[in-house]
Simulated assay, not measured.
Amino acid sequence: MDFAMDGAIKRPRIVNHSIGWARWVSIVLAIVTASALTFAARAYEVTPMRVFLQPDRGQNSATITISNIREESLPVEIQVFRRVVAADGEQIFEPAEEEFITFPPQVQIAAGQSQAIRIQYVGTLGEMAEAFVVQVTEVPVNRLEGTGIQFTYNFGVAVYVQPPRARARLAVSEATTADGTLRFKVANSGNDYGFLTGQALQYTVGTARVTLTPDDLASLVSNPIVPPGATREFAFPLASAPEAGPAATGEPVEVRLLRGES
């Protein structure tokens, strides 16, 4: 499972039905580039990309829609994982089937049709929000000719279960520069997940001031979420501020979130 951004990410999965490992690797390397342009036409769609549940308000369930845009049937299965985010942004996905009821857990969707999947949170939520991923996995069908290689897709839908009065409180600290890189930490003292994207960030190095728009941040941050009660570490390449010249290493550094910082 791979989250480049927070939301539903499609990822091709390669299934080998008949050939040895070494030959499989060589074939994959040879065909990935040529096949890249055909993936979109063969994919399916999952909506929404992000789900928020609030059990204290009776909102403990949601519906995910899978649309089969192919000209052949689509067999899929649904699995739920807990999403654990480390300080450096690395993620671990732990099985969490006992936390949710999914219906149906498996389904075959006819060509051009859609299927609604209901997910219901049945876990016990504490004082902090929890993050999960509902993974929609295409089930490979062994009916290929030739190489025996098949490309399938996984989609991950981010699910956040929020406690009462959920709120993220983000604050920046320990900003430094070295080797052309800006490094800083973002701590979340709230009880909900915070998102570095969706807001602007401004940093000052000496007399140079650079403002990064939400779109800028989206291109720089591969994993934007900051868990409640946790601290994340971020690193960006230093940019040039037109009004002040290049931001220089060794100068005093200040970093501010223009929205979302408490």
Rank of each mutant, 00 (worst) to 15 (best):
D2F: 14
D2A: 13
F3W: 02
D6S: 13
G7H: 09
R11K: 11
R11Q: 10
H17Q: 06
H17K: 06
G20E: 11
G20K: 08
A22S: 11
V25Q: 07
V25P: 03
I27K: 10
V28N: 11
A30N: 12
S35Y: 12
L37W: 07
F39A: 09
A40E: 09
A40P: 00
A41V: 08
Y44I: 04
M49T: 14
P55S: 01
D56I: 06
I66C: 09
R70G: 13
R70L: 10
E72R: 15
V76T: 06
E77N: 10
V80K: 00
F81M: 11
R82A: 10
R83D: 06
A86R: 12
A87P: 02
D88Y: 05
G89I: 11
G89K: 07
E90L: 11
I92C: 00
I92S: 13
P95T: 07
A96D: 10
E97Y: 00
E97G: 11
E99A: 06
E99N: 08
E99M: 12
F100A: 04
I101Y: 07
Q108S: 10
Q108Y: 00
A111V: 01
Q113D: 14
Q115C: 14
I119H: 02
Q120Y: 02
Q120M: 08
Y121N: 00
G123Q: 03
G126S: 07
F132G: 05
F132T: 01
V136A: 04
T137K: 15
V139A: 04
V141C: 06
N142D: 15
E145Y: 14
G146K: 10
G146T: 12
T147H: 09
I149M: 12
F151S: 08
N154G: 10
G156M: 06
G156I: 02
V159G: 05
V159P: 01
V159N: 10
P163R: 04
A166C: 05
R167Q: 15
R167G: 14
V172A: 06
A175P: 01
T176Y: 09
T176K: 08
T176G: 05
T177Q: 09
A178E: 12
D179C: 01
D179V: 03
D179P: 04
G180E: 07
F184V: 07
K185C: 08
A187G: 01
S189W: 12
S189T: 15
S189A: 15
G190D: 09
D192Y: 02
Y193E: 03
Y193T: 01
F195I: 04
L196M: 15
G198Y: 05
Q199G: 04
Q199T: 11
Q199H: 09
A200C: 04
Q202N: 01
Y203E: 06
V205S: 02
G206K: 05
G206Q: 04
T207P: 09
V210N: 09
T211P: 06
T213V: 03
T213R: 03
D216I: 03
P224G: 05
I225Y: 00
P227G: 03
P227A: 09
A230D: 08
R232F: 02
A239S: 15
P242S: 05
G245R: 04
G245T: 08
A248R: 13
T249A: 15
E254Q: 13
R259I: 00
S262V: 13
